[in-house]
């Protein structure tokens, strides 16, 4: 068996699920059970069962389930990786720069990543989207969105 081809992306995902289950299974042994009522199975019991179930199903799926080979999948290209990085940056920037500035910048960069057209289209969309969502949530729904050091 060719190991490089056997360990496909799909198997890697299932393996990651197995590892997540194993980590939480181990963590259940550190849960304090001193305050449980009579007859109760305790706060660590059910998570341990769920973690074991995850390990069991993911472990069996790793070997028994037919997986799609990597050749049949769209590759994760630069645009996808850039988009993933962008949303992480957006979440980081929002409390620092405020909703308005971080959203405007994110809209601009997102459209640049996916080649959103002429600069004026990108700018107009970013302004419209930022202003529209800000108006609906901040003014209509009265939800206090994060503010930047400049007060908006």
């Amino acid at each position: 068996m060719n190991n490089a081809r056997w360990f496909t992306y799909e198997r890697a995902v299932v393996f990651a699920m197995f590892v997540f289950g194993a980590l939480l299974f181990a963590a259940t042994f550190r849960i304090d059970t001193s305050t449980t009522a009579a007859g109760d199975v305790g706060p660590g019991f059910v998570p341990r069962i769920f973690a074991a179930l995850l390990m069991l199903c993911a472990g069996l799926a790793l070997f028994l389930t037919k997986m799609t080979s990597d050749e049949n999948k769209h590759p994760i290209d630069f645009a996808t990786v850039a988009m993933l990085a962008l949303v992480i940056a957006y979440a980081t920037a929002m409390p620092l720069l405020g909703y308005v500035v971080s959203t405007f910048l994110t809209m601009v960069v997102a459209l640049l990543i996916v080649r959103g057209g002429e600069w004026w289209r990108i700018g107009a969309f970013a302004v419209g989207m930022t202003a529209g969502t800000w108006f609906v949530f901040s003014k209509l729904l009265q939800i206090g969105l994060p503010l930047g050091p400049w007060g908006f």
Binding site: V14, M17, F20, G21, L24, I31, D32, T33, T35, T36, A37, D40, G42, P43, G44, V46, P47, F50, A51, L53, L54, C57, A58, L60, A61, L64, T65
Partner: peptide
């Protein structure tokens, strides 16, 4: 198997936080 593993993943995520009987942090 992958469906059940996904369900178990969802179940496990709900275990994060205080437990409903004793309030123990998990």
């Amino acid at each position: 198997l992958r469906g059940l593993a996904a369900a178990a993943l969802g179940l496990l995520v709900t275990m994060i936080g205080q437990d409903p009987v004793s309030g123990t942090a998990r």
